[in-house]
Each structure stands twice: as C-alpha cells, then as structure tokens.
Amino acid sequence: MLSPVPARRLSDITEAVGATPLVRLRQIEKDCPGVELWLKLEYQNPGGSVKDRPALQMMRDAIADGRLTTDKVLIDSTSGNTGVAYSLFGAALGVRVQLVMPSNVSQARKDITRAYGTDLVFSDPMEGSDGAIRLVREMVAGAPERYFYPDQYGNPSNPKAHYLGTGREILEQVGERITHFVAGLGTTGTMMGTTRRLKEHIRPIHCVAVEPADAMHGLEGLKHLASSLVPAIYDPAVPDETLPVTTEDGWDMADRVAREEGLLIGHSAGANVFGALTVARRLERGGCVVTIACDRGDRYFAPMRWEKNHVW
C-alpha cells in the first residue's frame, strides 16, 4: 500500500522527534455534529510520548550553553514519560541519566527507563510527584557540581519545544480551520508553549486547559494545580479557560477512543479528548477542535504491585 507521506531517513534518533500526525476522530465527532475533532498523535515520537519534545529541547539548550556536559549526570523527577525521553536521548547523546520517581509508578516505566541504562531512585508514593521533586532538589543541593537538573517544571526550554514544534505543526496541519485547542496541565509546558504559538495566529483560537477535577485523581501526568506545587513555567493568563475532567471520564474516553477510532491512547489523552468533546458540543457548525494524545494506553498495561490479580 502506498503511504501518503514519504518515508523519512534520519541521521540519528533525535531527528525523529516531532512532525507527528494529526488524525481526525470521525466516530467521536458524531457526538458534536458539524464540529471537527482532531487528535495529534504525540505517541509517534520515538520515546512514545509528547515528552520527547521538551526533554530533547532542554538537553540541547543545556548542551549548547555548557550547563550539560558528559561529565555530569542529568537528574530530574518524573513519573515516566519525561524519564523515558531523557533516557533515550541520554543514551543517544552519551549523557548519564538518573531519575527520581514515586515508587508507585507503573513497572513498565521503570523497566523502559532502566533498559536505556538509566539509574532510578524512588520517592515516597504517599507524597506523589511533589515528593519526587523535593527529593531531587535535596540531592542536587547536596552535590550541585555533579548534576544537571533540567527541572521540567521550571525550564523555559519545555514550553519553547511546543512553541517551536507542536504549535507550529498544528497550524500547518489544520491551517485556517482551527478554532479551539485543548490540552491537559501537567508541567503545563504543552499548554503554555503551544498556546503562545497559536495566539500569534491571525485569527483568535480559544485555548482550553484540562485539569483533574479533584486533587485525588488517576490521570497520570496531569496535575491538579490548586493542590500542587505550581510549575514555575505556568502562567495562568495563557489559557482562556480551565476545564475540570474527572478520572472516570478520562479513563472511559480512553477506552472509547481505542474501540471506536483504533487509537489506543493513555489516560491523560483520554481526558484531553473528553475535554475536546465537551468544548465541541458547545460549538456551532464550523468549529474545529484540536487536542493532544500525550502517550499510548499500552504504557499503562503492565500490572502494578496491587493489581496483580485484579482486572478493573
């Protein structure tokens, strides 16, 4: 079968980052007649998630100005996808990587990052991602010369990756049609960078931030900002609106997108599509809503310790 796009030839794996496909959700769209729904497949990045973009940008920018050398260890807190990206590019660029994550992240994440040669340090699962952030800060404060700490929550290269990549690509892919953009808040890099680029567009684009409806939630990768350490890169003035989504709605939509569209997306992506559909249902004909598939659902398949005999 002929592919509609030319096959790429790459000089190294970092060139595989970005230029992700945008796919129309024709089945989900039936719930919002006359409005287009589009999903950007960030899991097509080589590390399998949207996090390849900020991780590579942070590493490249730091290598360019000397903050990151092969004598240093890259260390950061992450419950998974950013860690996979650091590990992948660390291996490709010859940089040692150490990751701090709460011990309750999925086994698959631990195994994937270790496969690239990364060292893992575990923080208290009761303290969540904020506990991992605090532990990294302690470790770096104890030996600042040893580490390069990208700090994805505070590093301007994170939103920059989306400004230069994600936002520009969306405008190239849907052009004049886009009316709305929807993305979840985690580090907030996707929302900040993409929205800033979209806001430069000639026509106003309404940008909606999805966040977990409650502090206690199961939407891995997303943050309930009111109860979290607020990322330094987050500017509340950037999104036009914040839309709360429950864990159950996000999980159920992820299942539905897999069954109806053939796209096996992760829970945060499910929350994004749920948010996009919520926005689309308010619109008149002619709306065009774009959202992000942060990663794939199979990243969540490996059973965690407490799931060993249990199927939800």
Binding site: S77, S79, P125
Partner: peptide
C-alpha cells in the same frame, strides 16, 4: 491502612 492513588501525578 494506607490510601494510595493509582498514579503519582505530574510526569
């Protein structure tokens, strides 16, 4: 008893 969310939040 320990109450643990299925995930950690943040990424």
């Amino acid at each position: 008893l320990q109450i643990v969310p299925a995930i950690a939040g943040g990424r």
